[in-house]
Computed example of a mutant assay.
Amino acid sequence: MSMTSTDSTTKPGDRIGVLVADDHVTVLEGLAAIIGRQADMTVVGQAADGREAVELWLARRPDVTMLDMRMPVLDGIGAVEEIRRHDGAARIIMLTTFDTDTDIANAIKAGAKGFLLKDAPREDLLAAIRSVHAGETSIAGALLTKLASGISSEALTGRELDVLALLAQGKSNREIGANLFISETTVKSHLRSIFTKLNVLSRTEAVTVANRRGLVHL
């Protein structure tokens, strides 16, 4: 496996050494360029997948690691968990194009100290690196509100999630019942419960909210 990195594994002065991992070359190179232009930062490695990121982390021991949540071979969550098995204090920021409650919660549960959307302003990106390097947690206020909203709502049961998944596929109550070997009356009961827990009034709204929260994937 080839690993792309900066020419030197040592950090000039007291710069923050940053490892960046993303499977999209343009995103990876863009992040590296932004970080590399900062007087107090230097890029110590670039990886194209989660496995490569873990190997580079072990070789370079960066101060801060930025991981794309969805990468081939090993995803961002898996990479965070592996890195933290080597160092529970590792400072990691998760990058994603998604902002579902589940994504945010999974990143935090895995041990990420920061959570950023890829389209976040450059200033937010750099501020997150500096904050996480300083031992702080960096999650945008809007994302925290979204997470709190998801956590505060009552969790769906396994059967309700099954019904919701079929609902997202456009199945009718009769089709959902046939797939799950339950009656239409039971399906309707589950739907009422789902609507209440998701605080929605229609099937379409339920699917939309569930998709936003990462409960279903369209």
Results as ranks from 00 to 15, higher is better:
Ser2Leu: 10
Met3Tyr: 02
Met3Glu: 08
Asp7Ala: 15
Lys11Asp: 05
Ile16Met: 13
Gly17Phe: 09
Val20Thr: 09
Ala21Arg: 02
Thr26Phe: 12
Val27Gly: 04
Val27Cys: 05
Glu29Trp: 01
Gly30Leu: 00
Gly30Ile: 00
Ala32Thr: 01
Ile34Phe: 12
Ile35Met: 04
Ile35His: 02
Arg37Ala: 15
Arg37Val: 10
Gln38Tyr: 00
Gln38Ala: 09
Gln38Asn: 01
Thr42Leu: 07
Thr42Ser: 14
Val44Ser: 03
Gly45Asp: 00
Ala48Asn: 03
Asp49Tyr: 06
Glu52Pro: 01
Glu52Ala: 14
Ala59Pro: 00
Ala59His: 00
Pro62Ile: 08
Val64Ile: 04
Leu67Phe: 04
Arg70Glu: 06
Met71Gln: 04
Val73Arg: 10
Gly78Leu: 09
Ala79Cys: 08
Ala79Leu: 09
Glu81Thr: 15
Glu82Thr: 13
Ile83Arg: 01
Ile83Glu: 00
Arg84Glu: 01
Arg84Leu: 12
His86Cys: 11
Asp87Pro: 12
Asp87Gln: 10
Asp87Cys: 11
Gly88Asn: 01
Ile92Glu: 01
Ile92Cys: 03
Ile93Met: 06
Ile93Cys: 06
Met94Asp: 02
Leu95Gly: 06
Thr96His: 07
Thr97Ser: 15
Phe98Lys: 12
Thr100Arg: 11
Asp101Trp: 15
Asp103Tyr: 13
Ile104Cys: 08
Ala107Asn: 01
Lys109Asn: 04
Lys113His: 14
Lys113Asn: 15
Phe115His: 06
Lys118Ile: 05
Lys118Met: 08
Arg122Gly: 02
Leu125Ile: 15
Val132Asp: 03
Val132Tyr: 02
Ala134Gln: 14
Thr137Glu: 10
Ser138Asn: 09
Ser138His: 13
Ile139Met: 02
Gly141Phe: 07
Leu143Cys: 06
Leu144Trp: 01
Lys146Phe: 10
Lys146Pro: 00
Leu147His: 10
Ser149Tyr: 04
Ser153Gln: 11
Ser153His: 07
Ser153Thr: 12
Glu154Phe: 05
Glu154Tyr: 01
Ala155Asn: 04
Arg159Glu: 03
Leu161Met: 14
Val163Gln: 07
Leu167Lys: 03
Ala168Lys: 10
Gln169Cys: 01
Lys171His: 13
Ser172Asp: 01
Asn173Pro: 03
Asn173Cys: 08
Glu175Ser: 12
Gly177Trp: 08
Ala178Gly: 04
Ala178Asp: 13
Asn179Ile: 00
Leu180Cys: 09
Phe181Cys: 09
Phe181Ala: 15
Glu184Cys: 12
Glu184Lys: 12
Thr185Ser: 14
Lys188Gln: 15
Ser189Gly: 13
His190Ile: 03
Phe195Asp: 03
Thr196Glu: 13
Lys197Thr: 02
Asn199Val: 11
Asn199Leu: 13
Ser202Asn: 04
Thr204Phe: 11
Val207Ser: 05
Ala210Val: 03
Arg212Gln: 14
Arg213Phe: 11
Gly214Gln: 04
Gly214Tyr: 06
His217Ile: 15
